[in-house]
């Protein structure tokens, strides 16, 4: 079978049509959407992409990370600092940023998996390292500490893809490509030997070991892939927002934001992170607009809204929105 054949093997026609429609809609969206809507879509794609990366660890391999902001921040800071200090562009910066994040992931993974730190204790360890980074970067002079690292900005007439200097529409297409690649890549991973071993570990680690799986090795792979993918989003974040503050980038609420999408959409599913990002970010923006239109000023309304969404999903659709929606639409994505 060809690569493509294997990828779409077992996928129903309906799912392929849905994917096609979604792809076309997202491709032409910037032509129709105004400036504001475009920034919302960028945010949605950003969370869809990171959600997919986080899902590799939690949804596939069963390892709960509550500190994914660490990898975003390391990617963002590494690439931004290289750009500010040495004029090294983001794509070359990736060659440093990704290994830095991967190393951080490997460090956490090694500590946890070598010394059998599992479950909630693993989650706490991920928070701890992220907090450590937040405090550390607050005092790191090279990245301007707590006063923030700023990328030079000017009015752009064109889009410089090589230096990621340009208008939002460029970032939109980069994130769209990244999300699409992540989706296809995750599907390929799930269907591979690694994917089977991950799911076995997720389901029952001891039984997986007695089936001959070197669980340490495969959990390490999951963390390193997830961290690397996430750091790419960090690089884009840095060049999109042009400013980085440790208090914002590494804050625990950032880590939580990352995981809400996949949880609402459906942990362990391929569509879950994408759907979750649309639902959460989309509805939150609608809420903001409604409140603004009504002249109500409610700081923190978004957080309350996220809380309500999460509560609703946990109570009504504990597997997430996607498995339910898939059943309703007659699309049977088996819980792969």
């Amino acid at each position: 079978m060809t690569m493509l054949g294997r990828l779409i093997d077992g996928v129903s026609v309906r799912v392929l049509i849905l994917l096609g429609v979604l792809a076309v809609a997202l491709l032409i969206a910037p032509l129709i959407a105004g400036d504001y809507l475009l920034t919302v879509l960028i945010l949605i794609l950003y969370f869809a992409y990171i959600g997919q990366a986080w899902n590799i660890m939690m949804g596939f391999a069963g390892q709960l990370s509550l500190g994914h902001a660490l990898y975003v921040g390391l990617g963002a800071y590494t690439a931004a600092a290289l750009y500010v200090h040495f004029g090294i562009g983001p794509w070359l910066g990736l060659l440093v940023a990704v290994p830095v994040a991967a190393l951080a992931g490997a460090f956490i993974g090694f500590l946890a998996f070598r010394f059998k730190v599992g479950g909630v204790y693993f989650a706490i360890l991920t928070i701890a390292v992220c907090e450590f980074a937040r405090v550390g970067f607050d005092h790191l002079a090279w990245t301007r500490g707590s006063s923030g690292l700023f990328l030079p900005v000017s009015q752009y007439s064109g889009n410089d893809l090589w230096h990621l200097r340009g208008r939002p529409v460029m970032f939109y297409y980069i994130l769209l490509a990244a999300t699409a690649l992540a989706f296809v890549g995750c599907r390929a991973l799930l269907q591979s030997r690694i994917g089977y071993f991950w799911r076995a570990i997720r389901e029952d680690e001891e039984a997986a070991r007695s089936t001959g799986i070197d669980t340490f090795h495969y959990k390490m792979i999951a963390v390193v892939i997830s961290a690397s993918m996430t750091s790419f989003a960090g690089v884009i974040y840095a060049f999109y927002y042009n400013n980085l503050f440790p208090e914002q980038v590494f804050h625990i609420s950032r880590s939580i934001e990352i995981i809400l999408g996949p949880i609402v959409g459906g942990v362990g599913t391929l569509f879950g992170p994408i759907l979750g990002a649309f639902v959460l970010t989309g509805l939150a923006e609608i809420l903001n607009n409604v409140l603004a239109a009504l002249g109500i000023d409610l700081p923190g309304a978004k957080q309350v809204f996220y809380g309500i969404c999460l509560l609703f999903v946990i109570m009504a659709l504990p597997d997430g929105v996607w498995p339910w929606l898939a059943r309703r639409m007659g699309l049977s994505e088996r819980s792969k």
């Binding site: 030997r193 089977y196 071993f197 799911r199 076995a200 389901e203 029952d204 001891e206 039984a207 997986a208 089936t211 001959g212 799986i213 088996r334 819980s335």
Partner: peptide, 19 residues
């Protein structure tokens, strides 16, 4: 017994076969 509960019967055995 400890099969992998959320995997299909076939996938359970594929995990073993992949060794």
């Amino acid at each position: 017994v400890r099969p992998f509960p959320a995997l299909s019967v076939e996938d359970n055995v594929i995990v073993g076969a992949l060794l």
